[in-house]
Amino acid sequence: MRRASTVTTPRKLSPYAIARTRRKKSLQRFAQAFFGQPAGVIGLVILSVFVLLAVSAPLLFDREMLDITKTLGNESLEPPNGDFWLGTDENGRSILAVLVWGARASLVVGLAASLISMVLGTLIGIGSGHYTGLAGSALQRLTDWFLVIPFIPLVVVLAAVLGQRGLGTIVLVLGVTSWPGTARLVRAQTLSVEGRPYLERAKVLGDSDWQQMTKHVLPNVMPLVIANTTLTVAIVILSETTLAFLGLGDPFLDSWGTMLDKATGAGAASTGAWWYLLPPGICVILVVLAFTLIGRTLEVVLNPRLGSE
């Protein structure tokens, strides 16, 4: 700021300062628009509760409470009571503890797999929209190919082929199978951006393909990508639940899907142990709902054409 004294009226702004100011302004605008939408706020509140629970899981419940060798003293499938607010499972573990720890697994899998899906989908989508000719068609065929393969068998085969079931494998499997929808969407938007004169101008100014894609196409498809990714998180969490329920998850990982799988295995449905089945199911629904609400709101806020004034 010492420079301010030497440089007078025409205030010199460095490109970085300009970019910073610009970002700050648009972020403020964005926040204002987002918090004006009740649906988005509700989604954000629900999600915050779950994130808070997941983050503070080690503070709320000792990890040892999940170890079945330490819970042998407890009665199995005990209905909710003063000690165990949500009852116990077949091994005598506190369902509430498993549920809170399960939030971690489900959220991590959902976010990580969506991130992979977002990166893959955006790269392939922009690539197939930008490059006309062989490369573009090849990318598009690849997208179509992944799109038409039935999801569950593909995931089952991938999970089996990758062997060694762990958190990483599940993330990878869900990530590489859930990008084609994003890719199609991004491709469509890329094609529309590519037709605008500013891309022609960029070409004439000397921008390389990479610069055209990153400086002009990406910023203009990003809002769509973000909104879409939020919706993908919901789908991925559901898929993870499906996988785990089918017994393809990590048996040592307590996610909500695994809980549902074990509950069915322990005959929770037939013995009327509703406290074992309902909580993970409701949690999945709530988190998926939260992400969907946020995703839809982002769509409306970031895409002015959807906004109703």
Binding site: P15, I18, A19, P197, R201, D207, P219, N220
Partner: peptide
């Protein structure tokens, strides 16, 4: 260099004047 017909379409809506000229 080229100057196009439609000045509105020729500028990236997400770029400021500075960035558009500095490109």
């Amino acid at each position: 260099q080229l100057v196009l017909q439609d000045p509105t379409g020729s500028l990236n809506p997400r770029q400021t004047v500075y960035e558009a000229v500095a490109e």
